[in-house]
Design a binder for these strands. Structure first.
Lengths: 146, 146
DNA sequence: GGTAAATAGTGGGTAAAAGTGTTTTTTTGT
DNA sequence: ACAAAAAAACACTTTTACCCACTATTTACC
């Protein structure tokens, strides 16, 4: 579904234009109805087509919430989820609370990860790409060959 | 599949001509559909014929993403992957985000590594060739004989 | 080795699409 | 009912994809 990264601009009203290559796909998959919410691990936003969101949402709701960490995850993800619809020009208005959560200003990067997309501030995204992690690699990565 | 290195030029619009010796191979292997993405370890790009990419993609998607390092790898590799098709003149347009990631300007080097190819800026590639590394060799290299 | 022909590589131009900003209308709250 | 804010509609600007034409390089043949 989503693939590749591309930079996009947010206008003064907090709107972003969804890249045209996704518009047809989204129209087919969910009538242009997407759900956007906080990514609980990093300060970015997750974007799902409405049907995918229902699966994710159900999975998270089903977690046993006696653990504090589970409750926190539920609050961040479910509590920030907003359903949005593309306007006639293929734009969506990002809610102010989410803009603040992910620290978004004018320059953003939309990152496609198959079933979902992530929305980052350009600054944070570049920081991620620059990051060099000296921690030992987990077993799974050591044996990986690309 | 890919072998040997050769220098190629990027034009003002960010297009590169795929060397003719690969065109027939690519047409046969994947109808000219290739996937290009970030190399997560060095600042260069990886180029795969579409079928090979599917294997790599599946491997990376399957990694447990509770590790931060895995998420970062997934974002860099999957999040930057773009499927491209050769145009009528055997060229592809490199997406702006990838050009920036690998710091590409006019002069590039395409390096064939069998199942994939790497694309470097000429400058970075030459720096790599000049590099001398005094670190101890890993086990796999100690037992190697060329 | 030289010449000609074919193939590879390069550089724009243009029409269509995508993106962006502004105006107008509608809604909501006081 | 009026003012403010939000949403929708509209109009303009920029970018991109596709096409065509030219130049350079390689290959083949004499």
């Amino acid at each position: 579904m989503f693939q590749g990264s591309q930079s996009i601009n947010m206008d003064a009203k907090g709107r972003i234009a969804i890249p045209s290559k996704y518009r047809d796909l989204l129209a087919a998959a969910c009538n242009g109805r997407i759900v956007i919410t906080a990514n609980p691990y990093e300060r970015c936003l997750n974007i799902y087509p409405e049907p995918q969101w229902r699966d994710v949402s159900a999975k998270i709701s089903a977690l046993p919430n006696s653990h504090k960490q589970v409750r926190t995850l539920q609050r961040r993800v479910l509590g920030n989820a907003m359903e949005l619809e593309l306007d006639a020009n293929g734009r969506v208005l990002l809610p102010a609370t989410l803009r603040k959560y992910a620290d978004l200003d004018k320059k953003l990067v939309l990152v496609g990860l198959n079933e979902k997309a992530e929305l980052w501030s350009e600054e944070s995204w570049n920081a991620l790409l620059d990051e060099t992690d000296d921690a030992p690699l987990p077993e799974e990565l050591l044996s990986l060959s690309l």
